[in-house]
Design a protein around this nucleic acid. Sequence first.
DNA 1: TGCTATATATAACT
DNA 2: AGTTATATATAGCA
Lengths: 107, 107
Amino acid sequence: MVILKDSTQMANKTSQGRKRIQIKKIENLSHRKVAFSKRRVGVFKKASELCLLIGAKIGIIVHSVGKCVFAWGHPTADSVVDRFLSGGVDAGRTRENYPVTRTLAGL
Amino acid sequence: MVILKDSTQMANKTSQGRKRIQIKKIENLSHRKVAFSKRRVGVFKKASELCLLIGAKIGIIVHSVGKCVFAWGHPTADSVVDRFLSGGVDAGRTRENYPVTRTLAGL
DNA sequence: TGCTATATATAACT
DNA sequence: AGTTATATATAGCA
């Protein structure tokens, strides 16, 4: 297939859009924060799709370097990760189908 | 931006490549199996990247409908999911950096 | 946070 | 399992 891009518009652009990056720790803090937010959503979304397409159950624990713990799961974060959180931390419930992210205190 | 696709080549193709799909359970078993395999790898890869880029710790439990349980984690599946598997199932260790998928018996 | 150009993931075929 | 055409995810900016 041949793809032609309008050269007049391409020309005067310092290069917008996504660039390739190395998969190694992002040193710049603010960059890292942004990437974390975006990619966390991305992973959860992918997991969500996997659940719905296959009918599997998934639990994900993202243990950020700070102290926040994001948990996601289907049907609920608990049902899959329950025993994981048996320490006594309130796990909360995520909604069915498109579960929401929960921020858990402590841990 | 303007994108022009060569019509002569586009024409005689019954339509290869990826099609858009609905995010709902795939009824066809074999299709579902292959989608499961591919997407499971995809999710784990995304998670892996998130770990490396941000330096976070992640644990994922994929509870397929059958009886297989796939676990993935960084630094190790255990370190994050340890208590989750406290039931006595051998969790095994995943390798550093690019952890491998482990199939756990039971559960 | 929202936008845009691209890098990636992946559905349909082989 | 490997290929190809596209749908998606997202890096760099505003």
